[in-house]
């Protein structure tokens, strides 16, 4: 710390700032409150938005921070959701306990698939991630005793949160519960990704060979990150199961995985704020446009993707930051 005080400029960047986490929590809570009071009739949609945001954030942990391209992330989301559904039907109805069940199931699925997927790079990696996702999807369809097959798993009725707040018809409890979970997870991840472990993961993404040369054990770290990503996805799945009361095959589908990737890249990979922005913007647009015609929506998403790859390859959050910086420079210049 003596060095840090002697050279304050770089140290201030490296030093742990709990302020960033606090700011993250505050921004999410503030946004959430705006949603609560401005759209009181759309709370079910906003709750769904939060669960998907958790999936996108979990995808960012492996794709953005570790450079693992995957199209099978929904598998872990779905495993978490189905685990919670089964636990709840078996009699474990406390929502907080159910969250931990989803997290554990997702983490287990993440560790297992990570152990397989991160052994490879490029095309084999991508294809393995797809194949694992499809395998889980096919199993979910087949094991109807556990998953309800194509009918889905329904009748999930968790008890009141902390024994006080019952889940109501207007999704008020569900929304606030989800919002608190999102804020907590987000703050913890903000902290975790600045830890030496998180920084080393970025190093592995940028240059795996060099990371190995400085003595990092690349493979175990990637597997652990996959486990963490699975845990976050599992929390998302658990929230989805708790708040909607049903788990369908769509929660493990390839489309869900592909959409999550689209949202992530829309917002920008490699930052948690990017993942959150992408999930918000994409789903709000979808909510309003897809209602009119789903196929027009597909065309628009397609066009949007093409435009992003061509004009803003690092995502909306980064593009907006660059634009903002330029405007500020222009504003200050004359």
């Amino acid at each position: 710390m003596t060095i840090a005080s002697a050279r304050p400029a770089p140290a201030s960047r490296l030093k742990v700032r709990p302020a960033a986490e606090a700011r993250g929590v505050l921004v999410i809570i503030a946004l959430g409150l705006v949603g609560y009071f401005v759209f009181p009739d759309d709370l079910a949609f906003l709750t769904r938005l939060i669960t998907i945001a958790l999936l996108v954030i979990s995808l960012d942990l492996v794709t953005g921070y570790c450079g693992v391209a995957t199209l099978g992330q929904a598998a872990m989301f779905g495993v978490g959701a189905y685990a919670v559904g089964n636990a709840c039907l078996a009699g474990l109805t406390d929502p907080v306990m159910l969250l931990f069940v989803g997290m554990a199931a997702g983490a287990a699925a993440g560790l297992a698939s990570g152990a397989l997927i991160t052994r490879f790079h490029g095309l084999p990696q991508l294809v393995l991630s797809i194949a694992l996702g499809q395998l889980v999807g096919a199993l979910a369809n087949k094991l109807s005793g556990w998953t309800g097959g194509s009918d889905g798993l329904s009748g999930i009725t968790p008890s009141p949160v902390l024994g006080l707040f019952a889940f109501d018809l207007y999704s008020r409890t569900a929304y606030v519960f989800s919002l608190v979970v999102l804020a907590l997870v987000f703050a913890l991840l903000l902290r975790f990704m600045r830890s030496p472990f998180g920084l080393l993961c970025r190093g592995i993404r940028d240059d795996a060979l060099r990371a190995r040369m400085i003595g990092a054990a690349v493979y175990p770290r990637l597997v652990i990150m996959y486990g963490l990503s699975g845990a976050v996805a599992g929390i998302g799945g658990a929230l989805a199961a708790i708040t909607t009361g049903v788990v369908g095959l769509d929660s493990v589908s390839f489309e869900r995985s592909a959409e999550a990737l689209v949202m992530l890249v829309l917002g920008g990979t490699g930052t948690l704020w990017g993942a959150l922005t992408g999930a918000l913007v994409f789903q709000i647009f979808e909510h309003f446009v897809a209602a009119t015609n789903p196929f027009h929506w597909m065309s628009m998403v397609g066009l949007l993707l093409i435009v992003i790859v061509v004009f803003a390859p690092r995502g909306l959050a980064h593009g907006a930051a660059v634009l903002w910086a330029r405007l500020r420079v222009r504003g200050a210049a004359p």
């Binding site: 794709t63 391209a69 199209l71 490029g122 095309l123 991508l126 592909a258 990737l261 689209v262 890249v265 990979t269 196929f295 027009h296 929506w297 597909m298 065309s299 628009m300 998403v301 397609g302 066009l303 949007l304 993707l305 093409i306 992003i308 790859v309 061509v310 390859p313």
Partner: peptide
């Protein structure tokens, strides 16, 4: 690989939307 995935998924979505618009579902 990420830009390749996104661009080609984007083209796929666009084609699906346009084909459905012209030929029906």
């Amino acid at each position: 690989a990420l830009p390749q995935l996104l661009l080609t998924i984007g083209i796929t979505f666009l084609v699906i939307g346009i084909v459905n618009f012209i030929f029906g579902p």
